[in-house]
Design a protein around this nucleic acid. Structure first.
Lengths: 139, 139
DNA sequence: TTGGAAATGATAATCATTTCCATTTTTGTG
DNA sequence: CACAAAAATGGAAATGATTATCATTTCCAA
């Protein structure tokens, strides 16, 4: 798994902490399933496969992966958290409120806007979040 | 209240149902507070003002306003539902990660970006969120 | 081997949101 | 005005995701 290696390197490089077994399991499932999945769903998948991992550990691993920017956290329409492996580039999302379909989009304008605004108000060390949601053409 | 009238007409026009007292109360609070608010917060505000409205009713009224597209439903980062009047020109925030100070900023570039992206991918009925985080000059 | 730190997972707690249901208010009609 | 039907209301309990607690287990360096 090329992706898995890349991800591991990324984490080892940016953090002093090692990646633990649970983190790896979660990454593997997310890779395999491809799309989004909630913590509950990921837990069920692992259980179904005979893994005795606890729900608590799933939440903890996901949280740590999100902190390390290895996994993206988004929200379903009902507010439930859903997770997905990040790509390497910083991107934003266009999410369908109805079917959950997601498109990764360019955010050049946003980067510029964030930078400009931060400068104007004397902020430093800035980051930003930006998401667009609507109804996709299929729905 | 010009806005209030406009909103009422909109509702009466698109629905056979009349707008009830609770709906009006919620709209009034949302107008007054201007920004976003969660159901719990709206309930507290009304209670604080001596209104004995029940939490259930607040949720019901908000749901109905959302159905009638009078109110937008968004999500906080933690998944809690937040509501705002549709058509409000909304602003974005520049938040200091250290002291919590917040500046309301213009988001013209974002609005345009969101619209462009949505069109490009065939999405309709779109909204967006965008926040900038950083360290302010005082910190 | 061993001592301590990190990881784990069952259970309980938390919190927003929904569901249920009995009561109250509103509405239309004679 | 009176009255029955319909709509609205709100308290309490249920639900479901997420988080906190804590005792136990695993890992690893010395």
């Amino acid at each position: 798994m090329i992706m898995l290696k890349k991800v591991m390197l990324k984490k080892m490089g940016t953090s002093t902490q090692r990646m633990n077994k649970s983190d790896l399991k979660l990454i593997a499932v997310l890779e395999r399933t491809g799309g989004f999945a909630s913590a509950q769903e990921l837990h069920q998948i692992l259980r179904r496969e005979g893994d005795g991992i606890g729900l608590t550990t799933v939440y903890r691993a996901l949280q740590s992966l999100v902190d390390d920017k290895i996994v993206d956290l988004l929200r379903r329409e009902d507010g439930e958290a859903i997770y997905r492996l990040c790509g390497d580039t910083h991107h934003h999302h266009l999410v369908c409120k109805s079917c959950g379909d997601t498109v990764e989009i360019e955010g050049g304008a946003i980067e510029k806007w964030a930078k400009t605004m931060a400068e104007e108000f004397g902020f430093r060390d800035v980051g930003h979040t930006a998401e667009i949601f609507g109804i996709c053409s299929k729905c």
